[in-house]
Design a protein around this nucleic acid. Sequence first.
DNA 1: TATTAATTCGTCAACTTACCGAACTAATAG
DNA 2: CTATTAGTTCGGTAAGTTGACGAATTAATA
Lengths: 404, 404
Amino acid sequence: MTETANNIRRLNKCNVFEVIAHEGPISRAAIAKRLGLSKQTLSEVAKELESEGWVQQVGLERGNVGRAAMNFEVVPDAAFVAAVDLGGTKVKVAVANLACQIFGEATEPTDPKGGLDVVRQIARLCRQAMAEHDLDQDRLRLAVVGVPGVPDAATGAVKMAPNIAMLDEIDFSGELSKALGFDVVIENDVNLAVLGEHWGGVAQHVDDLAYVALGTGIGAGIILNGELVRGKHGGAGELGYLPFGADPFEDASLRQGALERVTATDAMRDYYFELTGEKIEVPEIFNRLDEDDLAVKVIDRTARETARALAAICALMDPEQIVFGGSIGRREELFTRIKAQFALITREPVELSISELGGKAALIGAASLGLSHVHATLLAGGVPGAEITLPPAKLANLGVVSNG
Amino acid sequence: MTETANNIRRLNKCNVFEVIAHEGPISRAAIAKRLGLSKQTLSEVAKELESEGWVQQVGLERGNVGRAAMNFEVVPDAAFVAAVDLGGTKVKVAVANLACQIFGEATEPTDPKGGLDVVRQIARLCRQAMAEHDLDQDRLRLAVVGVPGVPDAATGAVKMAPNIAMLDEIDFSGELSKALGFDVVIENDVNLAVLGEHWGGVAQHVDDLAYVALGTGIGAGIILNGELVRGKHGGAGELGYLPFGADPFEDASLRQGALERVTATDAMRDYYFELTGEKIEVPEIFNRLDEDDLAVKVIDRTARETARALAAICALMDPEQIVFGGSIGRREELFTRIKAQFALITREPVELSISELGGKAALIGAASLGLSHVHATLLAGGVPGAEITLPPAKLANLGVVSNG
DNA sequence: TATTAATTCGTCAACTTACCGAACTAATAG
DNA sequence: CTATTAGTTCGGTAAGTTGACGAATTAATA
């Protein structure tokens, strides 16, 4: 048959799989009713999915009137993806299975030599994570790596990642793919974080949102119309370059970004030094909030300028929710102050929340992106209209509070 | 047959229609080759499309070796949509046919009584436009109305449209639909303008762009990932509320928008008055640019702050192109200055252009949205994957320069 | 307690739709 | 007349449907 016609079985297979993934364990009859397919079309499809190893039968459902139904569920071990969060100081690796369970999480200091050494480190950690849980290495199909920079799809390099050496000089994704023996996807870590909060965090069921990461820099991951926004050159969400805070017409603003010059950790440390002559780290500034008016002044400036960034986000894209993450963005003392300042300059009702997944947001986002990818390639195979929406994450193993 | 299976014919029909619309006149054989369908599947589909009145046969294609091919083309009169640009001072109405030809353009002063009187005025203009070109009223299937405000889908009202009376107190789309006897879509006029430039203007083939309208206010229409961005409450692109220009923490900024207080026409007039004590309109300020340094100062401030708005847009969404429209945004003197200022504060390569469609951008965008809508409802009928991309606009009748 | 009724699950068989490929007819340039 | 291209007719295959039927299980009843 033609390609078009072949797709129809494919599409039904995807739909059946999706229902099993979301609502399983579930019987053939129930799926059939749910999808409006006939019972034995469903039997055929289920048989195919079962023989291909995607789903499996689990115990009979007794208790109702009538014949007991045989239930189906997704085979959790049918495929795995590795989720990697590569930071300047730490590499985190987790493994997610097809049932959306996430097995965490090996953490190591990032190899300071950078480049290919980091590639080897990540490959080793991925295999280690699989081995630790006695999982079949061959079932690992994909790795998604979050990086603190802008991935260049054409060359496989990572631009603008000053904290990790050599990342912009090698074909990072290509080399890692070679080392692992399967596909590798790289994505900006803040973009992954917003995907993470959208999938398994505080922003589930929200289709227009921003995740603002505040730490050594300031940046945002953006989802609009339910889709991640990357921009033409992957530079969407570069809040540091918003034209206020410092004077945007100064040369330093062109290099570092006008807003980043007054909000991120370096700026806070410098500002406190400027006010007091004392050089202390940002956590210590927070510690002194109760007794030190100048510490308050530093935090307030960051809060005020961050609130302006939120106002800019709202003016331009009118999101439903904004989530705060990053090492200082998650701090309650700052969050409260940002909220207060923000209330002064906006009328739109926007929900402000602190990240629920904390430092694991990017890792969980990587898992979600990886599982979507596996669905898209292994099951849907590019058939139009055969997208599989990801079932909710099962985060119990990661020690994260929520499960949506 | 089942719905799923039925869809496959539907999808093929859409695909065939799409190819005829884009590449017609074209023969069955060519379409079949193009889509990878067999010749007689194609004959069947073409016969169906013809009997339903969507396409028609046009003269044989002689000249090649072999039997002459019978070509198909879209029946231009199969369906029409009305495109309406409702402004504070003028209402413009155009009619577009299924072949993407646009018949312009009746213009009238907007009925100052507003509300239902404007509804009646629009209905009359739509019928008038059809009658003027001797077109069958029954084939008019949809009207798309661009409004200078935020349409509320739930109530059918238009919020934040101070220039037209009563628009937020009636079910505008419902009443107009009742008056016309078919569906009505309302959309913000700047959103329509960006769709217009994307479809038939200077931003064709660009999937991440903003259209900045600068006139009595400042606002933007945004397309990301090829899709219009509206935001949660329809407020995306409200550049006037960007938190710079004026002090965003002042109360007036909360009402009018910090940026709008220093960029739009009112602000320019006021600023010139403040500098000189003379009250003149904005076009006159432009006229004095050559001899009057204070006029220069006024224009420069607008240019500088607008450039900052562009920088904000780039920081947040990294578009490929930004298009300028609106009564003063299109002025070359201003555009040049904005470009110069913008160059000082950004590194990303963004193409800045002046709107090609001028005051007709919204009208043309309305036509594109309407035609997409007609495709989606009448042909695709909600089948997943059966989207029909709009063929290029044919703007000859509108006196617009380009045709892509 | 044993039997029967009701209900639900899953399969089999016959029929329908949509597509394809191959063979065939039709038209046309050279 | 021949090579070539356009379009149709004719089986054949894949996929899905409805309806009938056997199997399994609970609920009701003698």
